[in-house]
């Protein structure tokens, strides 16, 4: 700074007042026009869009949610029939085996509960897997909304299956209340669903399924072969169930937010996922 000041001083010293006059005269030729009203207004208009409008955003959100629901209907046909079918068959199979083998139906519930959602994620990310992501992102109903509406379908389907299985098992588990039965499968469901979502955003379909299935098989084996572990889940105090369920739900919501953020712009997606 000091240096600069010194330079200017020297500069001024070097110039004689006559030269100054000359420069002044020359500068008078140049006009710096004050921008007219119209131009100022135009600039303000351009800048105004960057000021966030809270009210507009929240009504938009509601609108978007309805659009999401409506679009879910259309996505229904996009999810392969074999997915719906195999999930239903799996649950019927689980019901029969438990009934005839006299296994603890609650174990069956815990083990089966998250499976449709896990496999459903493959359908959710189908566009990404098959290289349609970029085209989807440029559509009005964009990639992340497509994923959300499919996830909504898969989620509702999964919960319905679980509820039906719960009802099917009711006669055999009279000892505890419906609420407890629901909690028994819902808690691990939320946690595993959140984890699966996290994994599926990191890896491509095949890798994700293999990773998750191996984890799931180990978990199931643990529950089945060490009844003490399974019983620990079943006999947990209800307060803990609520606590873990709360954690599970929060984790899930965080992952959903991540998904929206990640699939909003192309560069967030990373390179592993976009080979076709």
């Amino acid at each position: 700074m000091a240096n600069r000041k010194k330079n200017t001083d020297e500069f001024v010293d070097m110039m004689e007042s006559k030269e100054f006059d000359e420069i002044e005269k020359k500068l008078n030729y140049y006009f710096v026009q004050y921008p007219d009203e119209h131009k100022i207004d135009a600039t303000i208009d351009t800048l105004r869009q960057y000021v966030p409008d809270k009210k507009k955003q929240s009504t938009k959100l509601v609108e978007r949610f309805w659009a999401l629901l409506k679009h879910s209907g259309r996505e229904f046909s996009l999810i392969s029939k074999s997915y719906w079918l195999s999930s239903i068959i799996l649950f019927i199979f689980g019901y029969l085996i438990t009934n005839y083998g006299a296994y603890n139906p609650l174990f069956t519930l815990v083990i089966l509960a998250p499976i449709p959602f896990i496999f459903g994620l493959i359908e959710v990310f189908k566009g990404r897997e098959q290289g349609l992501l970029e085209m989807e992102m440029a559509c009005k109903f964009s990639a992340h909304e497509i994923m959300l509406s499919r996830m909504l379908l898969v989620g509702v389907f999964n919960i319905t299956l679980n509820t039906m299985l719960t009802i099917g098992f009711l006669p055999q588990v009279e000892t505890i209340s419906i609420l407890e039965i629901l909690l028994v499968w819902f808690t691990p469901f939320t946690i595993f669903a959140a984890f699966a979502l996290w994994l599926s955003m990191k890896f491509r379909g095949a890798v994700f399924v293999m990773t998750f299935l191996s984890l799931w098989v180990s978990f199931s084996a643990l529950v089945v072969s060490y009844p003490a572990w399974g019983n620990f889940i079943l006999n947990m105090h209800i307060a803990f169930h609520f606590l873990f369920m709360g954690i599970g739900i929060i984790m899930f919501v965080i992952q959903m937010k991540q998904l929206v953020k990640k699939y909003y712009y192309y560069e967030e997606v990373g390179n592993i996922e976009v080979t076709h």
């Binding site: 189908k126 098959q130 009005k140 976009v274």
Partner: peptide, 25 residues
Amino acid sequence: YLPQEFGLYKNFTAVRFLMYFASLK
């Protein structure tokens, strides 16, 4: 927008694919 590289749903017919994208739009 047409990306340089893209995939398509292979099991779809051309009409079904376009109908689906029409709904996305």
